[in-house]
Design a protein around this nucleic acid. Sequence first.
RNA 1: GGUGAGAUACUCAAGUGGCCAACGAGGGCAGACUGUAAAUCUGCUGAUUUUUAUCUUCGAAGGUUCGAAUCCUUCUCUCACCA
Length: 403
Amino acid sequence: MSEKQIQDALREIARGTAEIIDEARITTLLKAYFEKGETYTVKAGFDPTAPDLHLGHTVLLQKLAAFQKYGAHIQFLIGDFTAQIGDPTGKSETRKKLLPAQIEENAQSYKTQVFKILDPEKTTVVFNADWINPLGATGMLELTTTFNVARMLERDDFDKRHKAGISISISEFLYPLLQGYDSVHLKSDIEIGGTDQKFNLLMGRHLQRAYQVGKEQAILMMPILEGLDGVQKMSKSLGNYIAVADEPNEMYGKILSISDTLMWRYYELLSTLSLSEIEALKAGVADGSLHPKKVKEALAIEITARFHTTAEAVSAGEEFQRVHAQSEIPTEMDEYSFEGAIWIAKVLVDCLLSPSTSQARRDIKQGSVKINQDKVDDEQLQLQTGEYVVQIGKRKFARIKVS
RNA sequence: GGUGAGAUACUCAAGUGGCCAACGAGGGCAGACUGUAAAUCUGCUGAUUUUUAUCUUCGAAGGUUCGAAUCCUUCUCUCACCA
């Protein structure tokens, strides 16, 4: 009986993972849970500087939620100390220290988003500055004696940068050590992260051994979700992300704009459909019985509904159909008021549709600017009193009133 | 500490006194075609109502010159070799 439960739980936990290290230990933990009701801890770390969660994060969060169903207590770690190190690729700006108030604010923002997926009863939010700062110079020195440079350079991105002659700061060597030390302090049983985190995750095991914690964390790695471009990983800084907090219309639209190839990737990593159901969809598209756009719409509905409501997702779908398939204007858009006749380029900038007057002029020249659905030809056009809907391209709209 | 090489726009990368707001590629934006998919073709991609013009930009600050991304000086940073 319990044997089957363990197997089922393990299967759900393993679904979609890229790699699991020490699966035997996970089995042991599950066994202890089912037989004796013992809980265990699962750690996952997040960056406090970017509290905007996106779908890439939710791949991990959903996995954490799966663990919660089977006795896990989540250690939701906000890396406020390690964020100071960051990943400075040479000349990128030096990380500025976040103010405590700012960290607190970001943490709150995290919580409201995260608890859409995680069970707050089985989650503890922790900050690693709380135990790394007290380490002091002595503790830090001790930490560095547990590892050597040659092994540090085994890490793939260090290795590449080293060979390519790109500088690596000493502080960056500290990053994996500190992340690993988090696992020592928290005595984590399992840590999960993206495949790009493999080295850091393994460091947790290494350090738990070095500091004689009495256990070595199992590791579960999730594949990296590609962003909207389909090539690079989804990240806020690359701007290719779908945020958890995105409005229904925006979320729906972004999903529909991904390529057909990428759509299957999103299905595998984000959808709750079983793998065999996804295979069936693929087969349907391949033999022409299913239109790929229909399949993409279903995905957009599923994901939008997860972070909003089904009703909102459906109406986002209808709105999308209206605006894009029938080229009508959206029902809702930002509104602006102006006094007196005003130059069209100025309007575009003031409505935040365009970043600069120059760009606005170029857009007009190219014929991508429309007023009330009519193309604007005159670059010098002055808008007189009245109400208009202005747009650039197919996505940017604003309603304006000139009085 | 010494020697040598280098720092150009979002990224890579040409340019070594005027023809440079700076070749080219990628990326991005827009137009055509579509399913806001892919592929393809085209235009744009520092700012500014002086728009066949003006202003600011080539690591930073000075200097030479009628004129500098290009030459000189100092500084900052990166890489390689030597110690």
